[in-house]
Each structure stands twice: as C-alpha cells, then as structure tokens.
Simulated scan of single mutants.
Amino acid sequence: MNRNHIHPATLILCFAAFILMLTTSCSTSKKLNYFNDLPNAETYELKAMAIPERIIERGDRLDVTFLVKDQESAAFFNKHSGGAVAAAAAGAGIGGTASSSDYLVDNDGEIEVPVVGKVKLAGLTANQAKQKLLGLVSPFLKDPLVELSFNTFKVTVLGEVKNPGSFIISAQHSTLFAALAAAGDLPHSAKRYDVRIYRDYNGKREIRKFDLRKASVLEDPDIFQMRPNDVIYVQARSGSLFKEDFGLFASVFTVLISAVTLGVTINNAKK
C-alpha cells in the first residue's frame, strides 16, 4: 500500500477550503470599501450637484461687515473695528471705515444691530439677510455696503467611528467626506451599509439611512451635501469583521469536513 497516496477526498477538501477563503476575502473587501458599484474605469463622470444655499438658523454665528464712506456715521454701528476690516473697505473701493462684528442668532432668530435694534434673520439666506440689513441701515448711512458670512459649520459624528464628537468645519459648506474625515473615518467594525443622518434644518426634521458601499450616495445631494448641525450616526457590527468572516468560514468548513468524513466512511465500508 502506498502510504504517500493522498486520498481524493482530501484533495477535494483542500480545494474547497481554498475557494471558500478566496470568496471570503472578496466578501470582506466589499464590506470595507466605499462605492463598490462604481464602474471599473479610470474616469467616471458624476452628475453636477448644486451647492445648497444655506439658511440662517438659531445658534448660527454671523460675520456682518458694514462698509461706508462716512467714518463718523459708521462709528454708531461699530461693535468693534480693526485694520483688517479697514483693508476690506479699501479693497471694495470705499474710503473711510468699516465695522465687522460677530453676531449670534438668538433663540428668537434675531441679532441686535447697534442703532437699528433687533433684526430677525432666521429663515433667510445670506443674500436675503444682506438686503434686509442694507434696507435698515440705509436711512442712517450714505451708500452703505453690507457683507455677511457664516462663522460656523458644525457637524456631529457618533457611533462606530475612530474619533466621535462635534466638529466645527471652517467652510461655508461641507460634504459627507469632510464630516467623516473630521471623525477619523470608519473602522473595520462599522456597518458601512447602515449609516444615518439625523437632520433638523429650516423647520424640517428627518432621518436618512444610506449605504456607503453604494455609488448612489455621491449623487444624492440630501446625503452628500451636509447641512449645519447634521448628526451622522454609524452602526456597529455585532462582532468584529474577523469574527464575522471567521464564523462563516468555520461553519462551511465544518460542513465540508463532515461530508468528506461521511464519504470516506461509506467508501471504506464497501471495501
């Protein structure tokens, strides 16, 4: 009897185990990679996506700059002045002075402007707020200009991320990529197929669920374009990725061992 002879069932078992490991490896990469269904091409053109015009909300901090020619009249509106703001006025082709102030939109949706008093800006876009302020200061200032921008863009990322927390992003607009990057991205133990956005914006509250493995995320403006104060929550797997895949491998491998053992037993019984 040739002791070096390898039983055919053993070869079949090894081959099956190899195929299973290869399949499991492919399955693992699909669980970890973003946008798995993108075409396999060097270049893929995404549809154009408009940047949403931000709405002023309670709790926003606004940078308001008044540019005027008459220095004395502008002084009444100054909360504080600085050289940088004067330079902005010069850049705009206006002599004299300018006042730049950080305004907090209060719980009533208002800011308080010197001389003018309280002005409700919540619910307006930046351009609409500029026009409203311009109309209110025009009786007091000659040929004024008003500049307005947002000082904050806060997003919160919670759950199975490397660095959960609230983040102030130094931009007027933000994207899903920026929010996830601020939180250190997702570890292997995160459910990329079960991510949710909790949104309370412009009087509307909603929850959006999405799958980061799908390329459709890139073309959905309600997901890809963040809104101020968005909360992203990432679900965690019940176990680590290794345990999950190893459990699958072990289960199938056990079935294969049982089948081969039964086959060998039956074969030996016939001899």
Rank of each mutant, 00 (worst) to 15 (best):
T97D: 13
D106R: 09
Y44H: 09
R54D: 15
T10D: 14
K130I: 05
I232A: 07
G95T: 10
G263E: 12
A171C: 01
I223Q: 06
F153A: 06
M21L: 15
V217C: 06
R54C: 15
A122M: 01
S73M: 14
L145A: 08
V252L: 12
Q235G: 03
N127G: 00
G96M: 05
A41K: 07
F77I: 07
S81I: 14
A9W: 09
S170D: 15
T24C: 09
N36W: 07
R61D: 06
A75K: 15
F15Y: 07
H5D: 02
F210L: 06
V264G: 01
K271S: 07
K204L: 02
V157L: 12
F177G: 00
F249M: 09
K130E: 07
N202K: 00
I232D: 09
K209E: 12
P144L: 04
I232S: 08
I111P: 05
T43Q: 06
V217F: 07
I55T: 15
P144E: 05
L248Y: 07
F35H: 11
F18D: 09
N40S: 06
K162F: 13
R196T: 10
D222S: 07
V234C: 13
S189R: 04
F66W: 02
T265V: 14
G96Q: 05
L158H: 03
A179P: 06
A87V: 05
L141W: 11
K243L: 10
L248G: 02
T24E: 12
T97W: 10
E57T: 09
K191Y: 02
M1S: 06
V255Y: 06
E206K: 11
T97M: 11
K69G: 10
A16R: 04
F153L: 10
S216A: 15
E45V: 13
D143M: 05
S100M: 11
F15M: 07
A16V: 07
K271H: 10
N229E: 12
R213L: 00
M49F: 01
L141D: 08
A122F: 00
A183I: 08
S240F: 09
A17C: 11
N127S: 13
I6N: 01
L262S: 13
A16S: 14
L32W: 03
G109A: 04
R196F: 07
N268F: 13
D143P: 00
V68H: 10
V68F: 10
E219Y: 02
G93R: 08
G109H: 04
D220H: 02
R196E: 13
F210H: 08
L62C: 03
Y233A: 11
E219F: 02
A126D: 04
A9H: 09
N4I: 03
T43F: 02
F253V: 01
L133M: 09
H5N: 02
D245E: 14
L241T: 13
Q225R: 05
A236I: 01
S170I: 04
T125Y: 05
H80W: 03
S238R: 12
S27H: 10
A215E: 13
A92G: 01
T97L: 11
S73W: 10
D37H: 08
S101E: 07
E206W: 01
E110I: 03
S216E: 15
N2F: 03
F140C: 04
S27C: 10
L38P: 04
K271D: 09
I12N: 11
D70E: 15
